[in-house]
């Protein structure tokens, strides 16, 4: 027997809560996303503002910024990722336990931003680790980060319950790039980074 969401809502109005373990776990997980206390640049200032009383990320259950990746669920890449820093970011990501999520906050973390043409800036953290939510802005306002967090909560609530990992997320560790003679080696992770092939007629 299956119950439609409308029927469920109707029952809730009458004081009957029908739910599943999966739904309950998703509800709980989505409201206790613990971010890693990790800032890279000016976006981190906005992230701090979002955690303070005025914007109050605690309303969404994410006020517990953990100083250790072992205790964190969410990596907010808040700022410019230089090629010198990129291996450390990937290491932090690898040290976080599953299920884990990543928000790329701001233009730099998404694409390199204003430093995109620089020789020393990674052109988007999604070249190395999987990103769940992109929050554009330079820097994004705290409200934008909160919106990104709410979107992430939606995503978590929609996920299947898996024991011992994230059913829909990536498996295993991301390879940590080396700082080579001219660039990162490898410069991107082919498992996650698939740049669209641009076909531009009349332009080449």
């Amino acid at each position: 027997m299956s119950i439609t969401p409308e029927e469920k809502d109707e029952l809730r109005r009458h004081g009957l809560l029908l739910t599943s373990l999966e739904e309950l776990a998703g509800w709980g997980r989505s409201h206790s996303v613990w971010p890693l206390q990790f800032g890279l640049a000016c976006c981190a200032i906005e992230m701090i503002a979002a955690s303070m009383a005025r914007y109050d990320i605690a309303r969404f259950g994410s006020e517990v910024f953990r100083a250790s990746p072992r205790q964190a669920d969410l990596l907010i890449v808040s700022g410019t990722v230089t090629k010198k820093m990129a291996p450390q970011v990937v290491r932090l990501w690898n040290q976080m336990p599953d299920p884990k999520y990543c928000i790329a906050m701001g233009a730099c973390a998404i694409s390199g931003g204003p430093f995109k043409q620089g020789y020393n800036v990674l052109k988007g953290i999604d070249r190395l680790i999987p990103v769940d939510i992109y929050v554009p802005g330079c820097p994004p306002r705290p409200e934008a980060l909160l919106h990104g967090l709410i979107q992430l909560q939606e995503k978590i609530r929609g996920q299947k319950l898996a024991f011992g990992g994230n059913a829909e997320g990536p498996a295993g560790e991301c390879p940590v790039p080396e700082c080579g003679g001219h660039d990162l080696v490898p410069p991107s992770n082919p498992d996650y980074f698939h740049p669209p092939q641009l076909v531009r007629a009349g332009k080449s």
Binding site: Q117, Q197, L198, V199, R200, A201, G202, K203, S204
Partner: peptide, 19 residues
């Protein structure tokens, strides 16, 4: 200058009128 560098990565486009 970025366009010149990005062009090297474009797939070989069939000669067609612009969209």
């Amino acid at each position: 200058a970025v366009l010149a560098k990005a062009r090297l990565h474009y797939a070989s486009a069939p000669v067609a009128p612009p969209a």
